[in-house]
Design a protein around this nucleic acid. Sequence first.
DNA 1: TTGCATGCTGTAAATATATCCAGTTACAGC
DNA 2: GCTGTAACTGGATATATTTACAGCATGCAA
Lengths: 213, 213
Amino acid sequence: MQKLTPKQQRVYDYIRDTLAATGAPPTRAEIARALGFASANAAQAHLRTLARKGAIELGSRRSRGIRLVGADDDVGERAANDEADAGLPVVGRVAAGEPILAIEHIERRVRIADDVFTSPADYLLTVRGDSMTGIGILDGDLLGVKSADDIRQGQIGVFRIGDEVTVKRFIQSETGDVRLRAENPDYADIQIDPTQDELVLEGLAVGIVRSIH
Amino acid sequence: MQKLTPKQQRVYDYIRDTLAATGAPPTRAEIARALGFASANAAQAHLRTLARKGAIELGSRRSRGIRLVGADDDVGERAANDEADAGLPVVGRVAAGEPILAIEHIERRVRIADDVFTSPADYLLTVRGDSMTGIGILDGDLLGVKSADDIRQGQIGVFRIGDEVTVKRFIQSETGDVRLRAENPDYADIQIDPTQDELVLEGLAVGIVRSIH
DNA sequence: TTGCATGCTGTAAATATATCCAGTTACAGC
DNA sequence: GCTGTAACTGGATATATTTACAGCATGCAA
């Protein structure tokens, strides 16, 4: 964790105090009010800086999604600052062009040991949509993803096509044409046109975790 | 603090777990999703009851304004007994008449933290067969099972009928007839004849873990 | 039988929150 | 003077969240 400026420290302290006083982290507006800012955006900028410096973690689009990861540990959290103990990051929506593991996308963490999947996952991706139900990957499932640079015929991968991230089966014909196959008869395959589409492999699917209610 | 009903306790527990897992209390919608309610209002009603009973405090018009005031003094505390360290036992085939958790059946252990599934699993069962593929439970999957004494309409459970252990959806008609529904059109439901069959509930399905090769 | 608590569904509205954009000011270092 | 960082203002917008209202079903005690 990098050193904080005095102002940043005040923001950090206010988050800690609010957590202790109310049981939940503050909103941007609350931080602004407490520190005398006229705009919540000032708080937002501070939070991003704190996140960049490793003092906090920010949940994406989550109200009060601020998590202290600095030295202080009065929330009752099991002291777990290194990734292994904190668990695998769960990634929700991924915005255009940004790296999939940007801290802003981490919604929470789930502790899954390395030996659960045959190949250890680097992170978990929340599955959206029904395009892979044919092989038991359902909407809302957590997909264990291992970063990789290449993928073989028939493997399930996480791909980025332009701005969208999708889970599909990788199919390459003898002529080199690439198709991403949906495992659901209601969905058509995605034919990749190398001159038009930019296809990026984000990683390989190594496992599934689902909670049943 | 007045005594809580089992349902209310589950809500309380979920708040505690969310606090530990994310650093902030859950929203009404998150509670509803986790406990299987279709309406956030069900959660709201529970929260008001918990507040009235003194288990929590509610902030007015405050997002995530839930505060635990029950007996738990350390919010993030998590009992780490030996079992948790060794991981959940993975049960393979179960022989006739023997208890499902007999030591002979434990093939290995897998470390999955309590907060991975909405409700913590007691053990993992290796799924055999395709009878539940319709809801994404495939042959070879590890099914998280939580021991329980009763099951409600529509829940997925692990049952023992005579000598066989099976995973099915529990359906009870108004007349009291019990059927175990396979979630695959190729398999027929199992109609339970109380005079013939001895039906034992081994536990409730709380989650799925699958390794993708 | 009546009344009451529990435990839900579903919809709508009001409000809270996060997040983006376009600027501004100040200061330190080159 | 130029560049980069820190620290803001103000406004707009999309989404998240709380909360109210109108019901329905069950079980339990008076």
